[in-house]
Design a protein around this nucleic acid. Structure first.
Lengths: 332, 332
DNA sequence: ATGAAAGCGCTAACAG
DNA sequence: CTGTTAGCGCTTTCAT
């Protein structure tokens, strides 16, 4: 027999609704009755039943995270666990529970989302990645359920999202390299279908342009997120011309580039990675990389979503999280 | 206005209780009415409200994971995310939702647990680590709520747990090294206060003994889980005597050992790590390590817990998950 | 095989 | 400021 609000009411000599008001910290309850009720609660070791509250309130105070299907490699970078931590730090602060689910493909993701929504389990949903033409996003828009995306979605209007300023991040990296005296700077990016890649590439181009440095097509390569592809891409560039620096859009690519450069072994070429994965500090030379502050991204995502859920009329629909260049041996 | 069981009942021309029975797949409902009800559901796009069900059923079909406070370093090893994936794979198969919460210290952990339990949010709890004298475990035992521990707890009776056979894992590693011709095998372990360390150390001792090799105290060291500590420990051993192999209880320690050995640089000493972290494949030489199959641990934990929750009268209260030695250059 | 009605524990008008 | 009452949406005896 669980102790309920009625038991407390009886002991405190008040009505159940009064107890309910005390729980909700309703301002128009006299201090005296409050005390009475608290005492009764303590005496009976009462704890509100959150399920019952949720049913009556039509709100679960729960956020659902959709962990995307992704290549194993991406699991090497602590992105997910960090984002989840950030989300939970803010969520817990605001009294929210966090749920998550894994999916093997986009269809399963949509299934989980609709399950979460239809069954009324979650007040809001967090997508950990923004793809082009994302079915999760279109579904969520369609059913008009609160959600937030980590990464910049295609149509940023009417959508909550958080991301880094990828243009600026790369712009700054390249500018920094130029200031250190580098002139022939190569670029190896991930798939150009991703917004991230495009943005970072633009940053690269603009930074060179701003300093009056011509862009050399031979120094630009697009490839996949893997060490091997990075290695191949670097090799190809080296066959054309020896740069004095190379920027990449991912640490994995940078690892491959480092390897290719080491094999040449004559020249000192600066290398910069992206995402500051754990392995970056373990390369030789240790790899300079851009930290994208994943935990912060998660934190901000939760904040945006919870504000929306609670109808805080903030005008912002996105946050930009600052990146940080972590300099290591590869650019010394 | 959400569509409820009453709406469906009306359209299907049956009573709400009948609809409820159809949802629960109650056997004594005629095929005919079932069909009628299903049609009505489809027509109205009805989805059961899980909260209301939970309230009536006194069961949420939700599992709660307690992510322990832990040093940042441990986050480098993908233990948590992998275990969480295993848990969710089994949980989702059984129709369970998964929640998690981060804590900064043991007290907070207990707080979250009691919050989960008192508010009736979860049917069962999963602890991702087993400490000595664990307050979470004693609390959970006290309130007698279903839970499972990853790692072997102190008192294994009346507790659900999953773990590797750490004794056997290390026994096999050492035996393997002996068979490869090594005789002077050093041991560097983590804190001896942990069961894991003790078990692995026993495995080391027994394997040597079984092959009639004497144990040399100079070859045994206990330290903390960090590269630096591993380095120091290895240095100290090397000052005494040069082994031809060294086993460790963690990759981080092994990394340090590798470094110390490289500095000596004259001798080829085999090194074995534990946990097969992502960095293992990135050391030079690449590090041989024992894969503890974390995802499997999570999967089994969920299985054990859900069986308990659903009162499946299985006699087992634990699972042992097999480990696998991943051989790389460090033992070639 | 199906329906009526009470209840899971809490909240929110409305009334006073 | 506090009590009464009617739900929130579903399940489950107990009848029939």
């Amino acid at each position: 027999m669980p102790v309920t609000i009625r038991d407390v009411a009886k002991v405190a000599n008040v009505s159940p609704s009064t107890v309910s008001r005390v729980i909700a910290d309703n301002p128009k309850i006299s201090e005296e009755t409050k005390k009475k009720v608290y005492n009764a609660m303590k005496k009976l070791n009462y704890h509100p039943n959150a399920i019952a509250r949720s049913l009556a309130n039509k709100s679960t105070k729960t956020l659902g995270i959709i962990l995307p299907n992704t290549s194993e490699d991406l699991f090497m970078n602590p992105f997910f666990i960090q984002a989840m931590r950030g989300i939970s730090v803010y969520g817990q602060k605001k009294g929210y529970y966090i749920m998550y689910s894994y999916s093997n493909n986009e269809e399963e993701e949509v299934d989980f989302i609709s399950k979460y929504i239809n069954s009324k389990w979650v007040d809001g949903i967090i997508l950990l990645t923004a793809r082009q033409n994302d079915r999760c996003i279109s579904y969520l828009k369609e059913v008009n359920h609160p959600f937030v995306v980590i990464g910049r979605p295609e149509n940023t209007e009417e959508i909550l999202w958080v991301d880094n300023d990828n243009f600026k991040a790369m712009y700054d990296v390249v500018t920094h390299l130029i200031e250190k005296g580098h002139r022939n700077i190569a670029f190896i990016g991930g798939p150009h279908s991703l917004n991230v890649t495009k943005d970072r590439f633009e940053g690269y181009k603009m930074a060179l342009q701003a300093r009056g440095i011509n862009i050399d097509e031979h120094m630009i390569s697009e490839t996949d997120f893997s060490e091997d592809r990075g290695y191949d891409a670097m090799k190809k560039i080296l066959e054309q011309k020896i740069p004095d620096a190379v920027v990449t859009t991912d640490d994995l690519i940078a690892f491959g580039a480092l390897k290719a450069i080491k094999e040449m072994d004559e020249k000192k070429i600066a290398v910069v990675g992206f995402n500051n994965t754990l392995l970056a500090a373990y390369q030789s030379p240790t790899l300079t990389s851009v930290d994208i502050k994943t935990e912060r991204l998660g934190y901000r995502a939760a904040q945006l979503l919870i504000d929306k859920i609670e109808n805080k009329e903030t005008k912002v629909n996105h946050y930009i999280v600052e990146t940080e260049l972590i300099e290591r041996e590869s650019t010394q």
